[in-house]
Each structure stands twice: as structure tokens, then as C-alpha cells.
């Protein structure tokens, strides 16, 4: 009994242990890795990725998958940039209104995604993949392929203004992480995500409105992608149709590395946090220890496999797809 308990505990904390081992490993090779400056750098790259990962975590808990994030982020980023400019171009005036509006806009995008998935009964992989094309397409259409600059000093404060060494965007990300944790643990919706992921038929039989829960999940994910878009625009000061590029694979990889099972029902936003940090630390660490850049993709692949092997409970698995 005790042994069983300790194994479970170990598995629960395995992703965090992997993260710690990585930090120790990179620090041992180059002590410069372990500095506030470098941690701030890791936190900055992690912030938008974390928002995407939290969004997709809710979907994965339900046993579905969402591949629309690249399109959703590009679309939200571009709409945000235009709206921000239209409303005055600075947070001083009505420009701030663009922030809540774009989160709403992202939620609507996700809602449409969810409706296509649920109403047309298209598996989420395909529905969201197609919606991703639509999002990227809409971003290309709006910008005509150009870059939209957002250079308001106040808005760029997300990156430039620092407290305790970390820029504001990191605190924004932490705030929405806590919101995500709250939704997950303290709302009926959050518990219903787990119910649907644990067994859809069972959830349905016990009175959970499965379709509504699914659509809500996609809407919340969409809102998180919009927040990621705002942070990504704040980070580089511009929006374009490729603003969302690369977020798809990184975010899903992070979520899985953090210990969220792709078949649903387990894991949560804290796993997403650890997973994002693991991937960011690997990426950052490879640069800091001076690995040639052409090896890095392969190395990331190998380390991710090792991290998944170490950090997921694979004894309980029957089928791996």
C-alpha cells in the first residue's frame, strides 16, 4: 500500500523533477544559465506559449484536440492591432478597450470552432485544423500580407516595464494561469471537463450537457489564444499573418511533456505550466551551453521523448495512439 502510494506521488511530481534536473544540468554546464536575467528570458518566451498551452489543456482534458491555435492567434493578433489603432492607438485613450474586445473575439472564434465540431459532428482534429486555416486566411486577408506595427509606449510596457526583474507580461500570464486554475478546480464547468474526458457516455448519463461543455471548452480555449496573441504582439511590437506560427506543435508538446494525457481525463493547468517551462528551459539551455543550432531541433526531439517517458504514468495505459 505504501509503495503504491509513493509511486503515485512520484508520478504526480515527475514532470517537476524533470524540470529541476534540466535546470541543474544546464547550470552545471554553464553557470550563467542560473541567473535572474536568463530566467526572465525564459519567462518571456514562456508567457504567450503558456496561455496557448492552458487553452489547449482544457480541450485535451476533454479528450479532444485543438489545432486551430496558430490561425486563432494570427487572426486575434491582427484584429487586435487594427482595433487598437482604430480606437486611438494608445492605452491612454480608448485603446484599452481593444484588450477585452479581443479576448471576446477569441472566445467567439473558439465558440464557432466548437459549434462546427459539435453540431456538424466533425472530429475536433479536423474541425479545428480547418478553422486554423480560416483564421490564418482571415489574417492574410486583413493585412494583405503586410506587418501591422503596434508601437504604443504604454502597451509595449508589457515587455519593457519590469518589476523584480520580470516584465509585466509575465505577471499577466501568471494572473491568467491562476484564473485557469480557478476555472479548472472551483467551477462546475471545470469539473465537467474532467467528466467528459473520463468517459463521455458516463458523463452524458449522469446529466452533464456534454455538447455545451465541449463548446464552452473551445470558447475558453479561444479566449486564451487571444490573450496569447496580445502577449505575442506586446513582445515583438507587431502583428502579422504569421504571428501564430509554431505555437501549435510547441504548445501540444508542452502539455504532453507536462503530464497531460492525450486521451483525456487527467492533468491540468499546472501540468501545462511545468510542460511549457520544460520545453522553454530545453530551448534556452541549448543556446546557453552553445549547442550548434542545426542540432537543436533533433536534440529537442530526443529530450522531449525522454521527458514524456519519465513524466507520464505509462503503467495505466492500455492503448497509445
Amino acid at each position: 500500500m505504501t509503495r503504491h502510494f509513493s509511486r503515485k506521488t512520484l508520478l504526480k511530481w515527475a514532470p517537476l523533477l524533470v524540470l529541476l534536473v534540466l535546470v541543474v544540468f544546464f547550470t552545471a554546464i554553464n553557470p550563467a544559465f542560473f541567473s535572474l536575467r536568463n530566467f526572465a528570458r525564459i519567462a518571456i518566451t514562456s508567457s504567450p506559449a503558456l496561455m496557448v498551452a492552458i487553452g489547449v489543456t482544457f480541450i485535451i482534458i476533454m479528450g479532444s484536440i485543438d489545432l486551430s491555435m496558430e490561425g486563432a492567434i494570427s487572426f486575434s493578433a491582427v484584429v487586435f492591432a487594427f482595433m487598437f489603432k482604430f480606437l486611438g492607438g494608445t492605452l491612454d485613450s480608448w485603446g484599452w478597450l481593444a484588450l477585452p474586445l479581443i479576448v471576446l473575439c477569441g472566445a467567439v472564434f473558439g465558440w464557432v470552432n466548437g459549434m462546427i465540431h459539435v453540431r456538424l459532428r466533425i472530429p475536433s482534429f479536423m474541425a479545428s485544423l480547418a478553422m486554423g486555416f480560416v483564421g490564418t486566411g482571415a489574417a492574410i486577408l486583413l493585412t494583405g500580407g503586410n506587418i501591422v506595427k503596434v508601437d504604443d509606449e504604454l502597451f509595449r510596457g508589457l515587455l519593457t516595464v519590469r518589476y523584480f526583474g520580470f516584465p509585466i507580461m509575465v505577471y499577466v500570464a501568471v494572473f491568467f494561469l491562476l484564473v485557469g486554475a480557478f476555472v479548472q478546480s472551483y467551477t462546475p464547468l471545470g469539473r465537467n471537463f474532467y467528466a467528459v474526458g473520463g468517459g463521455e457516455d458516463l458523463a452524458h448519463a449522469s446529466g452533464v450537457k456534454v455538447r455545451r461543455v465541449r463548446v464552452m471548452g473551445f470558447a475558453i480555449a479561444g479566449a486564451y489564444y487571444a490573450i496569447a496573441a496580445i502577449l505575442a504582439v506586446g513582445k515583438i511590437g507587431q502583428a502579422e499573418s504569421v504571428s501564430g506560427a509554431n505555437f501549435m506543435f510547441i504548445s501540444i508538446t508542452s502539455v504532453v511533456v507536462g503530464g497531460v494525457a492525450l486521451w483525456g481525463g487527467t492533468g491540468g493547468v499546472w501540468n501545462a505550466l511545468v510542460g511549457v517551462l520544460i520545453v522553454s528551459v530545453i530551448n534556452n539551455g541549448m543556446v546557453v551551453i552553445g549547442l550548434p543550432d542545426f542540432i537543436q531541433d533533433g536534440m529537442l526531439g530526443l529530450l522531449v521523448i525522454i521527458a514524456v517517458v519519465l513524466s507520464t504514468d505509462r503503467r495505466s495505459i492500455q492503448v497509445v495512439k
Binding site: 501540444i252 508538446t253 492525450l262 526531439g301
Partner: peptide, 21 residues
């Protein structure tokens, strides 16, 4: 190794990309 194919093939793809470079 029981790694979901979404991740394992992505990782192997990364190795292939590095080798190509």
C-alpha cells in the same frame, strides 16, 4: 516507450530535420 505518436513522430521529425541540416 508508449509515447503518443503525435509527439514521437514530431520528435523524430526534429531529428530528421537536424540531420538534413
Amino acid at each position: 516507450l508508449l509515447v503518443p505518436s503525435f509527439i514521437s513522430t514530431l520528435a523524430v521529425g526534429g531529428v530528421a530535420f537536424s540531420l538534413a541540416q
